[in-house]
């Protein structure tokens, strides 16, 4: 299925791009991120990372649907 992936802050620098369209065989947000870390060697999993789907905060075990926009957030540091 086609999905759009977006990277922010540290993840954007590691991936070398802000967004990309990918062909995902299906699965969870965690599996999609793992697929992207295999593609971008510099992209590292970080324990406190967050994920959002279609502009809603979500969970790593959420199932991805066709045409979803999946946002990968590295550890946040507001305040």
């Amino acid at each position: 299925m086609k999905v759009k992936v977006r990277y922010f802050a540290l993840f954007r620098e590691q991936a070398g791009c802000a967004s990309e369209s990918v062909d995902f065989p299906g699965g969870t947000a965690r599996e999609l991120f793992q697929m992207m870390t295999a593609k971008h060697q510099a992209l590292n999993t970080q324990a406190a990372s967050l994920v959002a789907i279609n502009d809603e905060m979500s969970g790593w075990e959420s199932t991805i649907s066709e045409n979803d926009e999946v946002l990968f957030f590295p550890p946040v540091a507001g305040g």
Binding site: F8, L10, N44, A48, L50, A52, P75, V76, A77, G79
Partner: peptide, 29 residues
């Protein structure tokens, strides 16, 4: 409110040091 703001919102902080280096805060690496 401030505690939740610091941990839940997609906000990132990049510090620029006097040495010329800059880095993202909370980067585990």
């Amino acid at each position: 409110i401030i505690d939740q703001t610091k941990t839940r919102l997609p906000i990132w902080k990049k510090e620029h040091y006097v040495t010329g280096i800059s880095e993202w805060v909370n980067c585990e690496q």
